[in-house]
Design a protein around this nucleic acid. Sequence first.
DNA 1: GCATATTTGTCCGTATGTATA
DNA 2: CTATACATACGGACAAATATG
Lengths: 230, 230
Amino acid sequence: MASDITAGLELDRALLDRTGTAERVAGVLRDRITEGFFPPGTRLSEEAIGAALGISRNTLREAFRLLSHERLLVHQLNRGVFVRVLTAEDVIDLYRVRRLVECAAVRQAKPADPDVLPALRDAVAEGELALREARWRDIGTANMRFHCAIGRLAGSPRVDELMGHVVAELRLVFHVMKNPRAFHEPYVARNREILGRLDAGDNAGAERLLATYLDDAEAQLLHAYSPPET
Amino acid sequence: MASDITAGLELDRALLDRTGTAERVAGVLRDRITEGFFPPGTRLSEEAIGAALGISRNTLREAFRLLSHERLLVHQLNRGVFVRVLTAEDVIDLYRVRRLVECAAVRQAKPADPDVLPALRDAVAEGELALREARWRDIGTANMRFHCAIGRLAGSPRVDELMGHVVAELRLVFHVMKNPRAFHEPYVARNREILGRLDAGDNAGAERLLATYLDDAEAQLLHAYSPPET
DNA sequence: GCATATTTGTCCGTATGTATA
DNA sequence: CTATACATACGGACAAATATG
């Protein structure tokens, strides 16, 4: 049954009610989607989920709107909302955006950005640790954190939000892939390499590595990616 | 009175109802906001607007939610929604994003992009025409269209959407400025100049012009910009 | 500082329209 | 083509928070 999705909601409800219910519900659903509990293509029934979470349909619809705007859900008129199924074109466009944003962020990064370099180091280290301990899923998560931190080199809240959405969409792609381990594994070392260039102040070199990184990842993803039919 | 905002809604309602009411209402409100009918800082009462548009509060709240996510409205818990008032930091960040995205789009543009070059030419010509005919507001609109077309050089739907949102936010800035004419006027010629470089295949030159363009505009904007207190 | 009025947050019941078996 | 299931949109209700005097 889908009643497990209420886990942890009651507690939040009790304390710190400074946020609306719709946002909170959206947060719960967002987690369930990005962790694969609701695979791409799943229809999210208003009635079922509303009943499971103990909220009204009005409130739930507001949460759906939020997630639709983040591109995690698609809204078909009079048919309901579905967990997004990304096409190959989506993957291509996502990597177009990543190339544009991440490369530009690296290029214009100040030599010693005291704020995000630690975040980059943490992400790389965490990826390496997850690799040693064979926690394959965590490798992907660390990877995402690394590239979000890359985006943060731009020093722009709006770019940060954009990267967050891009990463969330990429997770949808990963969930319809058969072997996420083979995909994420080789990039741990390459992240370390990029970090090295950034540490040395060699932004141009880092950008070049990042560009080929993204090209490779996109090609590999498109090859291994088989989008389920609608 | 605020009942004029229903203009054009009834007709749409009759034909082509392929879009939900919330989206349609959001469209109406978006127009009213970007055209300055609802200036930044205005509180949008659920009851008043719902009555004026003849829709229920639940539906209106969905429209509010959509516009909040586009950053045109801000939602304060138990206080309602307000037309966004941008701070100087917002202006700075918007130009950070523009520099990053527009410059990158220009840099990686293919020499002869047959799709967007006409759009760029149209926007420049329209700006020059509006300048000759002293339609100051239209100069700003043409300006926006030019830079949206610049973004389209990236060939990415997601970048297009990002630029659309950035431009919508910039309109909020312009509405709290005292003299929009003096601001927009000088940039008509500079747009023509950038277009010339792109036409000649000189992407690097175009990018350089664009960068100084954005630096100048940001500085001028920050100087002339006095955000109203909350 | 207090009491009142207003407005939002949330939920419910229902009628209508739409898609699908 | 009919029937069923579901989303859409409305209106009303009440609690909670906020604004006002």
